[in-house]
């Protein structure tokens, strides 16, 4: 890396739940305007890592910097302001059932008072258009949408406030391969259009190679490999190779057998 300040810099991040150590000293740099994909098996702490950066879980140790400012040592207001610059697409969409789609999409804009309620509906229609949905979808309830549409609405909600940083938690989980590719394409377009820095966590290799500029693998609470996303299938690391190629035999399975 050059001397440029990473947009997101994580150092020595540790988190345990009781006796179970989930993150055991994670170091991660994400440079401005790039997309980082974090891969790893189920239960390796990928979502916990994202939630620590978002402030949804308090880490036990370590530092999390955004543009060089340590999030964990800011006062409450500064933390809230820093985190308002982050948009998040949750694994299951996490749309609010009690309000219509248009209100879900414009939620952050209304919360940050960047748009009046009267103009929010129109703005939501515009953002829905960016993710390939008709503005009329805005009048529906989230429960009336298919899984793919819910992901698109979740993406629209994440990008509506034009965040500097976007997080994607398993963006293609539960979708068919075509819809998965559509969602990946939308993510790439949105990130490029907004000029945002993106972090996606996934165990879908096709999705990882489509979304990421760079990739990192989280294993046993640590980042064990990072490099260009197009090197994922040819990383030279036994653990990464086994994971990306989905082989039964290899160091990960050997650990399971112990």
């Amino acid at each position: 890396m050059s001397g440029a300040v990473p947009k997101i810099r994580v150092r020595g991040l540790k988190k345990a739940f009781g006796d179970k150590i989930v993150l055991d000293g994670v170091d991660l740099d994400v440079m401005p305007g790039t997309s980082m994909v974090v891969i790893g098996g189920s239960g390796t702490g990928k979502s916990v890592l994202l939630k620590c950066i978002l402030g949804l879980i308090e880490p036990d140790e370590g530092s999390i910097e955004i543009d060089g400012a340590d999030l964990l040592h800011m006062d409450g207001k500064a933390q809230t302001a820093a985190r308002a610059r982050i948009g998040m697409l949750f694994q299951n969409g996490a749309l609010f059932d009690s309000i219509p789609v248009w209100e879900n999409v414009s939620f952050a804009l209304l919360a940050q008072r960047r748009v009046a309620r009267a103009g929010a509906r129109e703005k939501a229609g515009e953002v829905l258009g960016q993710v390939g949905l008709s503005p009329s979808v805005g009048d529906l309830s989230p429960s009336e949408l298919s899984g793919g549409m819910q992901k698109r609405v979740g993406l629209a909600r994440a990008i509506a406030a034009q965040p500097e940083i976007l997080f994607f938690d398993e963006p293609t989980t539960g979708l068919d391969p075509i819809m998965g590719a559509v969602i990946d394409g939308l993510i790439v377009d949105c990130v490029k259009k907004l000029g945002s820095t993106a972090v996606a966590i996934t165990h879908d290799m096709a999705s990882a190679s489509r979304i990421g500029d760079r990739a990192a693998m989280l294993h046993r609470g640590k980042i064990i490999w990072s490099g260009p996303a197009d090197k994922l299938l040819d990383s030279g690391n036994d653990v990464v190779d086994q994971f990306t190629h989905g082989r039964r035999e290899g160091p990960i399975q050997m650990e399971l057998r112990r």
Partner: peptide, 11 residues
């Protein structure tokens, strides 16, 4: 269903 976490991420 993570909706409460989503509220936090939406300021």
């Amino acid at each position: 269903t993570d909706q409460i976490d989503a509220l936090t991420t939406l300021s």
